[in-house]
Design a binder for these strands. Structure first.
Lengths: 146, 146
DNA sequence: TACAATTATTTATCGCACGATTTAGGCAAT
DNA sequence: ATTGCCTAAATCGTGCGATAAATAATTGTA
């Protein structure tokens, strides 16, 4: 039982799966108030950091395909948070711009981080280190995926 | 920019989100070969560890609701891996039993852990420790969710 | 000009997840 | 025995995310 190879494997993947799940549940009520889903929130965060990115650029940062992003972005556009504008320089590209409502949303989201930190029972330093380790793992997994 | 509160928050949640995502992608081809999805795989693992669990019991271990599990279990039953049998002792409960095919599937899944470990570029010890830390974080998040 | 590469969209399909409700069975008290 | 409460699972409705594969439009190049 202890040396069952299906054990460790399960738990490292399961740890990620369930922690992500728990994070989702924690965010849910706060994001509901903003009319955002979790992946949509991630997109908004990248836009708050840098407006006017292309679909592909956002996808590169979030590791999402355009076939996932396009409908998601349309929902954000329908909600009034962004505008999808085809680039003049390269008409293959679509630039994503925040609307004034999209910009305003950042203020409402500003209180979220403190809530997460608080619920984590961790210090900022601990979370930062853990974040880095998880990111390192992700990078390895991605690299060796193909 | 550096003290933007939306930064840290994003990244601890995003680290989990994207690492889970990467893990999913790594599993996908292997699980496709077994005719399983990721959550279905998790259910199978819990059954390989202990057969004959109730729906609620499985949900408790995986943090899933019956409204999520019931259809998932029906798909596993349709695939021939499990059987759903109402308990004689308490007819409110449904016991999930592996079929012979479900048991046999464990052998085919046995090679997965090594692949994951290999792709992680980590030692078993490192993964074990990281797993523990992530699990601790999950516990805190769950506890403070309500 | 023809061909290749890039960018995003579309189409089709599927499963997960949640909330709210419902059904059925168990359990306890009066 | 009936009432009422609790629990377990299923159901219903809804929506999003994700992937794969094909398509379209534009750009760049041989």
């Amino acid at each position: 039982m202890a040396d069952d190879p299906l054990k460790l494997d399960t738990f490292i993947c399961f740890a990620l799966y369930s922690a992500n799940h728990a994070m989702n549940r924690l965010y849910k009520p706060m994001l509901d108030a903003l009319n955002l889903t979790y992946p949509q929130y991630l997109v908004m965060v990248t836009l708050w950091e840098e407006d006017g990115q292309t679909v592909g650029g956002i996808g590169e940062k979030l590791f999402l395909e355009s076939s996932t992003l396009t409908p998601l972005l349309k929902r954000l556009e329908a909600a009034g948070f962004i505008q999808r504008i085809r680039s003049k320089e390269d008409e293959r590209q679509v630039l994503i711009h925040l609307t004034s409502e999209g910009v305003a949303l950042k203020k409402k989201a500003a209180s979220i981080p403190a809530c997460i930190l608080d619920a984590s029972d961790h210090t900022v330093e601990e979370l930062t280190r853990l974040k880095a380790e998880i990111t390192t793992l992700r990078a390895a997994l991605s690299k060796n995926a193909a």
